[in-house]
Design a binder for these strands. Structure first.
Lengths: 244, 244
DNA sequence: CGCCAGGTTGATTTCGCTCAAGCAATGTGG
DNA sequence: CCACATTGCTTGAGCGAAATCAACCTGGCG
């Protein structure tokens, strides 16, 4: 059933709800038809790789359903998740716009459906509609801002603070609100990955989680998290003010 | 004398050596003349602010001489230097391209000369020559890559490692090589700023510096640094391989 | 001269890493 | 079906790194 919904949604970009809120929204009907005609939809199993570091870029991917982790690795083999992408997000635009090789790993976190649009088609659309380039520019500028915010947080917060921040950010995407105001979700990543996202060992994360439970702020059980007092957590990590 | 050289260099973009290696290099002679006609050159004292967070963007700045610090601050008032820009670099393109407000502070580190190019002129050039937009795109993509590398390093290295990396990076820009293979430079930032760049307290940085001197790897005196065995430092912080 | 910003140094405590053991869930070959 | 490895996570002990708090130095500068 869910699969069929996914299939219908991916059947044509013209009817794709997600297109309304991503970079493709500036395309007119004719351009969208071109997009739909050239896109290739494919299902990925959980854990399956979408692209890897060092490969040449042959096009971009557009997430229809599921969730995708973007990871970066350093010389010692440490792998750090950089971001999680969701339905509507477009992956791999950077390598394509720069004619560069992939600098990131990308991997499905859950069973996912992605549409692939090859390079010639994207180039054609970029030439045809300058607003599309502007969209990508905006997107990359926002990514840069996010990365810098992340840097400032890392320089400022404790591991606990960083983790609380991460939890709240994940909650925004994955969370549901219960009737009593508490919030809960399924974690999209393993504890190891969560740990390396905040630059800590997994043992340390385990202890931080223990302390959060002691403090009565959260309950963890497998991959489900329940934040009993999200408000208290929020004031633990005063966010950078939006006007900066 | 230096001032006069700076003045001559800024006198016209047509004769500006720096233009050859920054984003303006894709402009033809006519476009460059337009640029030269609209640019306004101005000198800044050391420590003087160029733009501040929250201001609207009225144009971009192009560094002729000196050095400029870009800083970001969070809600608690922590200020973290994000990067240092040098002659040839163009500042403030992000806010302009996105029609957004400034998200960064920018401040001259030494007596500096900058050219200001107002928004209408940049817009005109962008419309006239699509390659310019591509240049800015490339620039912002590289900045993003740098920021992500920074994130991975922060998650991986110790404070000492981060500082050594920072020293080597600064050395690339500011350093001279002595006859014996050792390298030296003037630090462009205070120790406090250096500390917050690696997310550490200034006392901690002071101790790290002490240890580097004990190890016979460096000598610090005021703002001058002398790296006696740069090679040893280099292998302390195995850089991410360039093929990622 | 006092004052102050920038930097160093010391003592103490907290935090987080390392190493090591243990546990539950899952998978696999016999 | 069991014995056995494997994977992901938790827990504990010990230790080193870094934060915190505080004193103190040093070179401008009014």
């Amino acid at each position: 059933m869910a699969k069929q919904r996914g299939h219908l949604r991916g059947a044509s970009c013209l009817t794709c709800q997600l297109r309304q809120c991503n970079e493709w929204r500036v395309l007119n009907e004719e351009e969208t038809r071109l997009l739909a005609h050239h896109r290739k939809s494919r299902d990925y199993r959980a854990g399956e790789s979408i692209f890897s570091v060092g490969e040449p870029s042959h096009g971009v991917y557009c997430i229809v359903s599921g969730a995708v982790a973007i990871r970066k690795s350093d010389a010692e083999g440490n792998v750090v998740p950089i971001r999680i992408s969701y339905p509507g997000d477009i992956l791999g635009y950077r390598s394509l716009l720069l004619n560069a090789h992939r600098r990131y790993h990308s991997e499905a976190l859950s069973p996912s459906r992605l549409c692939f649009i090859d390079k010639p088609t994207v180039k054609m659309l970029l030439d045809h509609n300058p607003a599309l380039g502007q969209q990508f520019l905006q997107r990359i500028a926002n990514d840069l801002s996010d990365a810098h915010d992340h840097l400032v947080r890392n320089a400022t917060l404790s591991n606990r603070g960083k983790f609380v921040h991460l939890l709240l950010a994940l909650m925004n995407r994955h969370g549901c609100t219960a009737t009593d105001g508490s919030r809960f979700m399924e974690l999209p990543l393993s504890r190891r990955d969560l740990a390396s996202m905040i630059g800590a060992r997994h043992e340390t994360l385990s202890r931080i989680i223990g302390r959060l439970e002691e403090d009565g702020l959260a309950r963890f059980s497998g991959r489900t998290v329940h934040l009993t007092r999200p408000h208290s957590l929020l004031q633990e990590v005063r966010q950078p003010s939006p006007l900066d």
